[in-house]
Nucleic acid binder design. Structure first.
Lengths: 102, 102
DNA sequence: CAAACACTTCGATACTTGTCACATCGTAGC
DNA sequence: GCTACGATGTGACAAGTATCGAAGTGTTTG
C-alpha cells in the first residue's frame, strides 16, 4: 500500500460528504470566476454556508477537513476566515484521470 | 443541495478508503494498458486482491460499493467476476477538475 | 468598556462503515 | 454426484463521523 494512495484517499474522503462537497464546489466556482479576472480569490466561511442547512460549528469542522486534506488553504483576516482552493491538488486530480477514459 | 452533488459525493465516497482506492487504481492501470492495446479489459476479483491484506468478503463488499457508485461495471464469467472501469465517469471527473487549477 | 460578530472547541449522540469469521451459493472439473 | 474454488450473504464489533447545543476566543465597532 502506497503512501500516496493513502493521501489520495484522504483527499477523496474530504469530498465524500454531500455538504462538504457542496462547500468545496462553491469555492471552486468562485475560484473559476477569479481566475477569469486574473487574481486569486478569497471567500468567507459565512458566504460558503449559503443555502446549506447546517450550523456554523459543522461548517467549521468541514472546512478544517478540507484544509487537512490539502484541498484548500485558509487564512485569517480579522474576524473572518479566508478560504481558497489549492490549484496543485486540482492539477493532481486532473492528471490522475487524464490518462484513462478514452 | 443539488442531486448531482449527492451523486458525485457518492463517487468520491467510493474512492475515500485506501484499500478501495487501491483496488480501483489497480483496475484503472489495467484499463490503461488495455486501451493502449485497443480492447476493453477484464479483471478478476482475486487478481485485484493482490497485495492488499484484506479478506475476500471485504473485497467483494468494496467491489459492490465501486459498482453502486457507477465507477465500475461487473459481469459474471463462470466462477469469476469481471470488473472494468466505466469510462464515462472518468471523463466526468476529468471535466469537473478541468476548468480550474490554472 | 461593552456589545456584536465570526469562528472554534467541547461533549454528546446517533449513525455509518471496514473488517472479520462463518456459512452459503453457483460453477467447473473429476 | 463430489470436491474445489470463486464469490456473496450474515451477524457482529470496533472505530469513525456528521451534527448539534452550549460555551469559549479573538476582533471589530459603537
Amino acid at each position: 500500500m502506497d503512501r500516496d494512495t493513502k493521501r489520495l484517499a484522504r483527499v477523496f474522503k474530504a469530498l465524500s460528504h454531500p455538504n462538504r462537497l457542496q462547500l468545496f464546489l462553491n469555492l471552486l466556482d468562485e475560484s473559476k470566476l477569479d481566475l477569469a479576472r486574473g487574481r486569486t480569490h478569497d471567500c468567507f466561511l459565512v458566504k460558503l454556508l449559503g443555502d446549506l442547512d447546517i450550523g456554523a460549528p459543522t461548517v467549521s469542522h468541514h472546512v478544517k477537513e478540507l484544509a487537512d486534506a490539502g484541498l484548500i488553504d485558509t487564512e485569517r483576516d480579522g474576524k473572518q476566515l479566508i478560504c481558497s482552493v489549492r490549484p496543485e491538488v486540482i492539477r493532481e486530480l486532473r492528471e490522475l484521470f487524464a490518462a484513462a477514459g478514452k
